[in-house]
């Protein structure tokens, strides 16, 4: 059967004009869209207000849906754990007794650390939490990796603040609305976090790849080999992320960088804590007045032509 594919409206002048006007609107609108796209490419936060306004509406919907989803999603887990509880109890007891010695040692080390820091009168910068909220939704269809946080500027969230999950670093705030904020996740292709290796403190950069992993790149010119098992924590360089937060562990050696998996897995993420930027950018300095030029010293300079070899 041939469906009525053609849009030709017959002899009606009005319908013909309407159709033509539709094409004019579509062509003009696509030009406008191209301009908007170019503006967004040049200045990404340009339309943050519009996005934040829509996110204000969608965030409560997402958080309500996630509550319902968690309620249903918890059912198989609780049924399974009912059967496996005996074995798990035994395993946990063994783990507890194994780790007791380690725990005592860590406690004494912590005490000693505090005492030494007091002795040195070390001024510690404490990362203050701003708010703890849920991550409710994310950019599921886009190749960028954004998540939406259920708290915004009314709760004190500002762009550039680090977001930390229970397992490690999650990302940082990109745009804020009154009650919602957009978070740039670590696995986004444009996210870069300065990290250091826990074993020897070697600095590196954790750059998102876009496919759920991060690249660990060496900062030094000599390519350092990052092998499986290397653990990286944030180094605090750059002033956004506080130092010592677990970021990623290397799972595979790559050709020029180590492939690493982040500790905070974005799918399993529930609550996230927003902290103040570790060392916020200082206010812009006043432009220094150009110092008066020193009078040039009367210096007899040897003419370069005299010492130059004549023939090449």
């Amino acid at each position: 059967m041939a469906p009525p594919r053609n849009r030709r409206p017959g002899f009606s002048r009005r319908a013909q004009y309407g159709l033509f006007l539709g094409y004019v609107i579509a062509a003009a609108g696509s030009l406008v869209a191209a301009v908007l796209l170019a503006l967004s490419a040049i200045d990404p936060p340009a339309f943050a207000v519009l996005r934040a306004t829509v996110a204000e509406v969608t965030t409560p919907v997402s958080s309500g849906l996630s509550t319902v989803g968690q309620w249903f999603g918890a059912i198989p887990g609780s049924v399974g754990s009912y059967f496996g509880v005996h074995d798990e109890n035994k395993r946990l007891r063994k783990q507890l007794s194994d780790q007791h010695a380690l725990f005592m040692r860590a406690r004494s080390l912590g005490y000693e650390n505090r005492r030494l820091a007091a002795l040195l009168r070390l001024r510690e910068r404490v990362a203050e939490p701003v708010v703890t909220a849920r991550l409710v939704s994310s950019s599921v269809t886009s190749t960028r990796r954004f998540a939406v946080l259920n708290a915004g500027s009314w709760q004190g969230v500002a762009s550039g603040q680090p977001v930390i999950g229970p397992d490690g670093l999650v990302g940082r705030i990109l745009e804020t609305g009154p009650n919602s904020a957009r978070v740039l996740l670590l696995v986004d292709p444009e996210s870069v976090v300065p990290v250091r290796r826990t074993r020897d403190g070697m600095p590196a950069l954790a750059a998102g790849r876009g496919d759920g992993l991060v690249d660990i790149r060496s900062v030094a010119t000599a390519t350092a080999a990052f092998g499986p098992g290397d653990v990286f924590v944030s180094s605090g360089i750059g002033g956004i992320y506080p130092p010592g937060i677990p970021v990623a562990h290397v799972i595979r050696r790559g050709p020029e960088a180590g492939l690493a998996r982040t500790y905070a897995q974005p799918d399993t993420l529930d609550y996230a804590m927003v902290q103040r930027a570790f060392m916020p950018t200082p206010p812009p300095l006043t432009v220094p007045q150009p110092a008066p030029k020193p009078t040039p010293k009367p210096k007899t300079k040897a003419t370069p032509t005299a010492s130059k070899p004549v023939a090449r």
């Binding site: 579509a26 609108g29 519009l50 950019s139 960028r144």
Partner: peptide, 23 residues
């Protein structure tokens, strides 16, 4: 034919793509 403009605008505001992409 112009319906993809407003529909694309709505999609851009919700997906993480920059404004104007779907439009």
């Amino acid at each position: 034919v112009w319906a993809s403009l407003p529909l694309g605008l709505y999609d851009d505001l919700l997906s993480g793509q920059p404004l104007g992409n779907s439009m």
